[in-house]
Design a protein around this nucleic acid. Structure first.
Lengths: 143, 143
DNA sequence: TCTTAAATATGATTTAAATCATATTTTAGA
DNA sequence: TCTAAAATATGATTTAAATCATATTTAAGA
């Protein structure tokens, strides 16, 4: 339902939310190690997130990735949408073909509520909120 | 979260629930076609389900797959557990590593409720109930 | 303006899931 | 007891996701 790539991306963005800002950029190798994701792999994901303007970056010496204040207001769903594409979470969790409330597959009503609830939460929760939770000790990195 | 293989398996078992019993066995090719899953593929899945006693089968002429009355009392979760293994749905939907209520990942509380609700429903819903829904027109095959 | 340190673009390789193929075993019926 | 029709066992191939590699571009600082 949600790929490892997306999970890695969330992890990395959260790390940036906690440790970076315009004045404190972080380069890939200093992100990949603490979040325990291979450097070349997370680099590719971060590049995609930067291209889609979900995170910020500058090249060259003293460069790196960081989250602007705007970036921190993004929600978790935005990240999943960029990495996995929009379809992934919109599909019925159990159905293979198109399936919706009007034309439900036999397990549609079993799975649909869970999916809708989850999606709403992912949309409503910002990176900033998650980072605050971690700072307050309510939850812990790494995911 | 739930593999295509499991979805195919659910589809096939539901088809058997609707169309088979001890006196009416169905062979793979007559299952694979209406549910629209490649014969060799669904055969392998059905064989695994039969080995794990979730469905019934007999070899030879007049043989085929079918659901006994006992088989029909199985729940959807049983199928997923056989095909995907137990771990799959027990894992936090978003976390990569071990993560639970005592040691939550930053998005644990976002995802966990949905997962628990879904699992409970899958466990509580029997194949028979799903088949009845289809017969009553509440839902439709194929999934 | 040259060098170096960073991200970026692009594509190759590996791995696991999905799919396909086939020889073997079992059983009904002639 | 022989034949044919079915599942079963086993493994090969394909495909998509995950992972790795590297040449190019950009920007800071000397």
């Amino acid at each position: 339902m949600i790929s490892n790539s997306s999970k890695y991306a969330i992890k990395a963005v959260l790390f940036l939310a906690i440790h970076s800002d315009e004045e404190h950029k972080i380069m890939v190798k200093d992100i990949s190690e603490p979040i325990n994701v291979p450097q070349a792999y997370i680099a590719k994901l971060l590049q995609e997130l930067a291209k889609q303007k979900l995170i910020s970056s500058t090249r060259g010496p003293k460069g790196g990735f960081y989250l602007s204040e705007e970036d921190k207001k993004r929600n978790v769903m935005d990240i999943v949408n960029v990495i996995d594409g929009e379809k992934r979470l919109n599909a019925c969790l159990l159905s293979l073909e198109r399936c919706n409330s009007d034309n439900p597959c036999p397990i549609h009503h079993l799975a649909n509520q869970s999916r809708v609830v989850l999606m709403k939460k992912l949309k409503k929760t910002t990176i900033n909120e998650l980072a605050l939770d971690v700072k307050k000790g309510k939850s812990k990195l790494p995911l």
